[in-house]
Design a binder for these strands. Structure first.
Lengths: 348, 348
DNA sequence: TGACCTTGCTAAATCCATTTAGCTACGGTC
DNA sequence: GACCGTAGCTAAATGGATTTAGCAAGGTCA
């Protein structure tokens, strides 16, 4: 049982409690009691005391002692929000792990992990501010709140920010304007007269850029603003619900840009249920960061899908920062590819 | 630049190199040099030496010192494979984080993260065997190799294994047989005469159970074995490729059970491209752990989707183990729900 | 009886970084 | 000349666990 008492229990408390030395306690708790020839009765008493006092090992102490003095250990992490699409995070982690696998040798070891925060509440993760957890991190899927926090806090270790610009850090992001503008062009080239944009309530830096550029491009070419459809979340069900509501209110559209592809998947369903055909009645453009896009019916035209390219830039940058290199660029722009598929192929 | 030399650089080396005390070096590297009134020239020399010698801070040392002695810190992790579907892992992490958020107070802090291994090569993560990293973990998406490793190694801290049975650990898994059997029943009830099963080359405990139960159920009811279609991976593209190849060889089927839903998404495409209609020509059953299933066209009938329920069981179990409780069950079975949707609704 | 072994345990060093208390030298004040 | 203040630095304690060398008590064998 965990005691609620103030003083945290160490092996010294246990030793005192049982009447043995800390060495005996340590040996027992590390299951070394046989080779250290501790009497089984002593072992039992130590185990009981540990359980009774609610002993929790201090990992820092253990690691410090266990540290082989010829190796340096780097602890790296991908920091992302719970709300973010995980496949993108998975790509990032894989890329980081690959880099790490190459660089690992006798003298250098790495540990990489994913660390998550609630979107918009990065500041509630105080462990990030301590310089005693990670040697370096890649941060992604931040909301404006988080961004402000980061800019003010200035994390005391190397950081690469993915997908948004932050003046105090090394950033990798989509070429601004590109996705929104090209999406608009694709829809307009398919002769859409009433293009719409579908996005979630919370705009990240990336999605708000897509939104703004799309809106501007449509306005420039048609003189009108696009229709704006807002969903409550980023899951397919949210996209479906938003479009259903839009149609229920008598909304009309003949082209749709969904700022990410789960929303597009949901939109597909609502469009079909409403009796409209893709692409004949509604052309659809999405964002192809997931494999999914190609396997929707009809296959989804996507702009972007730059995540992999961004990650490929970010990982080497992190290592350059870790190495203490100077002249590491503070901003790298990635131009996403475009895949024209069935969802925008309208017969002349 | 990182020196390749053997002895790892500590602040003591730097101190010796510069000719100051370790205290000065520590103050400088922690950016405390102003309040500690170090001469700017000294600071510069220390910084230069740190860079030149390739200093890498020892996080264990830092954390040990930084540790507030009235708090105990638990480091928890979800351990999963790179190849696994991430949304499931995300669910697990969210559940764990929620539990942790509730239990955090002045005296107890938690850090949760995701740690990944290459499927089948868990044994190459030696850090798992050290008792100096995590207080407890939830392990999921293991392959038979990994399972054998775990059974032999006996990790020296609390572990909950998700999705497979392992005699030496506390396990949470799908009720065996259930998913495979019910999937078979759904297809047979839709009057399929040639049911097939689609799975990846690598079978986890869970997928091999699904496979075996499906096969047995089909055999029991029809006297014949189902058709087996094997894909190289677990992504939609792999499912599509496997079915394409199957059709190209003249394969026939009128019902398909895909052991996970990315495969089902890929299969959908190949089936449609081949000119067959779902569900008229081919009824399809998948596994609904992702939101996606409902938004495929036609919406996908799914059995399973037990991940959330499994996670809900696993998290409390982990805490019970951490608390050192006795009589923690070693096996918890979860019965997954079933969602009948359009992909198996054939007209009489 | 003495040499030697075994059992069962402990003292103390060690891992690395941080921080507190305090020392020295120098300049200025009355 | 006594005293004070300050800049600039260091010695030493500290955090928690592990391990090595070794001590003491008791037994075995010649």
């Amino acid at each position: 049982m965990k005691s609620a008492g103030k003083p945290v229990v160490t092996i010294y408390e246990i030793a005192k409690h049982v009447g043995v030395s800390p060495a005996a306690v340590s040996s027992t708790l590390a299951n070394r009691h046989v080779e250290r020839r501790l009497a089984s009765n002593t072992v039992r008493k130590i185990r009981e005391a540990a359980a009774e006092l609610g002993y929790v090992p201090n990992m820092a102490g253990r690691r410090l002692r266990a540290h082989k003095s010829a190796t340096r250990q780097f602890d790296l992490a991908i920091v992302t929000s719970f709300e973010a699409p995980l496949p993108l995070v998975g790509q990032a982690l894989r890329a980081l792990q690959n880099a790490v696998d190459i660089q690992t040798d006798d003298t250098t070891r790495y540990a990489v992990s994913i660390e998550m925060f609630h979107a918009g509440r990065l500041s509630e993760k105080p462990s990030l501010l301590d310089a005693n957890r990670y040697h370096g991190v890649i941060i992604t899927n931040t909301l404006p709140n988080d961004d402000a926090f980061l800019a003010e806090a200035r994390l005391p270790y190397p950081v690469v920010v993915l997908g948004r610009r932050n003046p105090r850090y090394c950033c990798v992001l989509e070429a601004p304007e590109f996705v929104g503008r090209r999406s608009a062009e694709v829809l307009l080239d398919a002769r859409c007269m009433r293009p719409a944009i579908l996005h979630g309530r919370q705009l990240t830096h990336t999605t708000s850029d897509r939104f703004a550029a799309f809106t501007r491009a449509v306005r420039d070419r048609t003189g009108d603003d696009p229709v704006e459809i807002v969903s409550s979340g980023l899951q397919p069900r949210d996209g479906a619900a938003a479009l259903e509501a839009f149609f229920a209110k008598g909304g009309q559209l003949d082209g749709l840009f969904a700022v990410n592809d789960s929303l597009a998947a949901g939109a597909y369903q609502a469009i079909k249920v409403s009796g409209r055909k893709i692409p004949e009645d509604v052309a659809v453009v999405g964002v192809g960061d997931y494999e999914l896009a190609e396997y929707l019916d009809p296959s989804l035209t996507t702009v972007a899908g730059a995540n992999e390219a961004m990650v490929a830039e970010a990982v080497p940058l992190l290592f350059r920062l870790l190495r203490g290199e100077e002249n590491v660029p503070t901003e790298v722009l990635v131009v996403p590819p475009i895949f024209l598929r069935a969802s925008t192929q309208r017969a002349k």
